[in-house]
């Protein structure tokens, strides 16, 4: 188990490095990508099963396009994307969108209009169960999206249909475009809300590999309802020297942070873990 955890920690560190490397080109949602690296590591490199054809048997639905940077960072590590391509993100005339359109590798839905992932992933989970597939569906959305009514319509449907093959992941980072969600429009108590809707609700830090492995396993063991992992991440989790950009770091401009310092810090983490993992 220790080796499994160390390997996933190393992968998470490399995802953080990829996120910085990509976002330093033209800015981006770097703080979110960095904070979600542990979730991405466990999800893509441990929890979701391979399909035998170079892709995944299980399905991941990204509800908030902003967090595409997390998927890019992870799929660069898995070899599905090339860093040289990802560094062209948001370049005029380029094809690497900051918030991709449905059908691009790794992106099941067009996710820039927020709050539409929970119901689309529920529809997908319903269809997969209906056709007898054992594939699981994971859907990541943010606490800011909990302010959208469509989210709760989807959650209600998922619970009513007892979609135990569906696992929601809430990036509960208390940050949205205008500031802290708790100031803009409080969404708490998030755990109680999902529990009241009939979901198996698990609240975790979202940045501890062992805790994430356990939470996903627990969600898998539930057979009569969907699960939700409420992850209390905070922006820039995992890179200490970039914390100074807080609290207003919803979108990180190219000139807003010291990318070299961040890359140096995460480079040290990677080197240390490589020494342990071998």
């Amino acid at each position: 188990m220790d080796d499994r955890i160390r390997k996933l920690e190393l992968t998470a560190a490399r995802i953080r490095r990829n996120v910085l490397d990509i976002c330093r080109q033209r800015g981006g949602y770097a703080a979110q990508g960095v904070a979600l690296a542990d979730i991405a590591s466990v999800l893509y490199f441990d929890e979701m099963r391979a399909d035998g054809n170079g892709w995944f048997h299980d399905r991941f639905v990204l509800s908030n396009g902003h967090d595409a940077i997390m998927t890019y960072g992870a799929l660069a590590e898995s070899g599905h994307y090339k860093m040289e391509d990802l560094r062209t993100i948001n370049e005029d005339g380029g094809w690497v969108d900051q918030s991709p359109i449905e059908g691009q590798l790794g992106f099941e839905i067009t996710a820039g209009s927020l709050g539409q992932g929970p119901s689309q992933s529920a529809g997908l989970a319903w269809a997969l169960r209906h056709r007898g597939s054992d594939a699981r569906v994971y859907c990541l959305f943010s606490d800011g999206e909990l302010q959208e009514g469509n989210v709760w319509e989807g959650v209600m449907f998922a619970a009513h249909q007892k979609l135990s093959n569906l696992c929601y992941i809430v990036d509960n980072n208390d940050m949205q475009a205008s500031g802290h969600a708790s100031n803009v429009m409080n969404v708490e108590p998030v755990h109680d809300k999902f529990a009241a809707f009939g979901l198996h609700s698990i609240r975790i830090s979202g940045t501890d590999i062992a805790e994430l492995i356990d939470a996903f396993a627990q969600a898998r063991s539930v057979t009569d309802k969907p699960s939700v992992l409420i992850c209390d991440t905070r922006l820039w989790d995992g890179i200490d020297c970039l914390q100074e950009a807080l609290p207003m770091a919803h979108y990180t401009a190219k000139t807003a942070v010291d990318w070299d310092a961040g890359l140096a810090e995460i480079g040290s983490v990677i080197a240390a873990l490589e020494g342990v993992v071998g």
Partner: peptide, 18 residues
């Protein structure tokens, strides 16, 4: 999907992807 038209079309789109 109940009295929820946004849900109707977004769940439908998920079903199509399935």
């Amino acid at each position: 999907v109940g009295m929820a038209e946004q849900n109707l079309l977004s769940v439908a789109a998920g079903i199509a992807k399935g």
